[in-house]
Amino acid sequence: MHDALHARGVCVERGGRRIVRGVDVDAAGGRVTAILGPNGAGKTTLLKALLGLVPSTGTIRIFGWTLGDLSARQRAQRLAYVPQQTQLSATLAVRDVVAQGRFAHRSSLARLDAGDRRRVSAAMRTAGVEAWAERTFPSLSGGEQRLVLIARAVCTGARILLLDEPTSSLDVAHRLHILDLLRRLASDGRAVVCVLHEIDDARQHTDDAVVLAGGSTVAHGPAAATLSADLVDRVWGVDMIEAGGIGFRLRQGVTS
């Protein structure tokens, strides 16, 4: 049985500098994997290497297929990406943004068929964005836009989702909605891999963690056990206080 995503010794070099140094990542269906590390650790670059968006060395396998052997469309049918900051500023309707997720499933000349339209609607329902279907993308708040981009990723039908800091710059409600949504997407059998900055979010809401520093793996394993006070001290240079403080959770029955 293959892991959904199996990467070994991934290295990325830019301008003669090695940004990612021999990192291993495994992501299985049904699990949420967090990639953490201080700023400049190489998290985003690693995520882009896993997507094939930046040249890398090492082995990356997607359901047993070597990433480099797959065409752009084949990759898009298996791997979906949610960027931290989208470049999309055109006045596209939310429904049309989500429908971009169907591009890899039909010829460039073909129109959306009834099956595509059903998948677009289903993806919008899953992410809770169907109420904004006819609104323009730029008119949404940052948190709402993030949900639309997740809906687009779901619409691709890919079984592996890679998200770059999906909760950054969001208020607490949007942050919790997105973390809850990621859990629901994984519970449907998808492998979810996300770059996170919040250590406590990773401990509470993800299953596995890969911790990077200086482009190398420092630790990996089950999130709660891996993200120990000792590791936090070593990697981030701060004390982790496990007692006291306040926390937030979604109200019962509230999804997105």
């Binding site: 882009k48 997507l51 094939g52 968006l53 065409s71 752009a72 469309r73 990759r75 898009a76 049918q77 791997l79 979906a80 990406y81 960027p83 989208t86 470049q87 999309l88 055109a90 596209l92 049309d96 943004v97 971009q100 997720g101 591009f103 890899a104 460039s108 000349l109 687009r152 691709t156």
Partner: peptide
Amino acid sequence: WAWARPLDVMLSGQEEAESLGVD
């Protein structure tokens, strides 16, 4: 007109378009 759909997806930028299957 034949390139219309890839160009629509490329409104999201090069990286996002590539991740969505546009060469």
